[in-house]
Design a protein around this nucleic acid. Sequence first.
DNA 1: GCAGATCCTGACCGATCGGTCAACTAGCGT
DNA 2: ACGCTAGTTGACCGATCGGTCAGGATCTGC
Lengths: 204, 204
Amino acid sequence: MPIDSVSPHPAARPNAGQELRATALAQFASIGFAGTSLQQIADAAGYSKSSVLYHFASKEALLGEVLTPAIDRLELILDRFVASPGESESRRRFVDDFIDFLLEFRLELHTFINQAQSLRGIPVIDRAGALIVRLSDTLCHEQASTEDRIRFGIALGGAAYTLVAGMTFLSKDIAPADEIREALSVVITELLAPVAVHTIQSRE
Amino acid sequence: MPIDSVSPHPAARPNAGQELRATALAQFASIGFAGTSLQQIADAAGYSKSSVLYHFASKEALLGEVLTPAIDRLELILDRFVASPGESESRRRFVDDFIDFLLEFRLELHTFINQAQSLRGIPVIDRAGALIVRLSDTLCHEQASTEDRIRFGIALGGAAYTLVAGMTFLSKDIAPADEIREALSVVITELLAPVAVHTIQSRE
DNA sequence: GCAGATCCTGACCGATCGGTCAACTAGCGT
DNA sequence: ACGCTAGTTGACCGATCGGTCAGGATCTGC
């Protein structure tokens, strides 16, 4: 046998699909879906391009499997919110759940938020888009003022940006996780509270 | 002469460069720089790919010329802010200038904001990145709390998102421009004010 | 040992990528 | 009529794109 020769067919790794999903998500979030090639994903994860296409039927299918868990989670949060009876009580819990969601699925949210328009037609993207609209309608009641809509949009897009792109070059030293969570909670609540409870005087 | 045949060499259009910049900007903002091909830009603008490369040395050079006016403008605003004497007075004018900037260069901001990390190394991007850091440092004074940084990030990323992607599917009916401006002013001021004046008791 | 399933890969496909180049057209001053 | 310049284009280049396919490696159950 040849000495120290690397096998042309490395051993099957246990969680290849998981590794590829994580790698693909990172690339989609930073370079964009259209700008990310299967070769890049394969290289970054240490596989061949063929392996990626073995685990996922296509590039779009890979995107679908990458984003679906986040959408499922957000859908769950929204459903639980609309089903709960109280007003300020359930809304406070919703904001808490929402911030958990932001922190856990920051890359997925960033990927969707900033590319939804150009990826229209892909099933998982359309599903996510419909969910965001429903979320906006639910939080802004029926007839929402322009300001309410903008508050929601800024909270959503702002959080997605801050937790992904902003971290890299805005706060050079990454603050402790719980500190980020606390600050995020304050700001998001401040943004969303007037939308929710119109009578609150949150500015004094 | 052939009847009604279209010329294979259409007449030179007066402002080809301008048209191409605008078309490229729209594509960069929605599909991303890496995901946008010169052919797409050429097709959308009604030129050939060769024409694009005649007016701009390369794809990166095109990006540079597209983004530079926005960066120049933002740099101007920031310079005027740091040079002005008053505290709350100049800050109020800065927020006004900043909102004008947001509304006028929404696509440029969105392009930069969401792709700066993946486009590092391109001169115009690095310049913009440095400017954002300076902007953040200036607004947050020296030692900024995590919350202040997050407030600034959310304002920046949130505005970029809301004014570009959010408009398309969040507020189906596009609100009047002045109404958007007013709402934006309220929310941005609310986000940036505590960052500016540390003596305000914004949390009790 | 061996059949089958699973995982991974290189070779290959047509299409498209960013970019170069020579040719062509039109307008201009002379 | 002439040459010159600016603007536009198709043909073409090597590289890479998403995707297919046949086959090698590894493991299991028999």
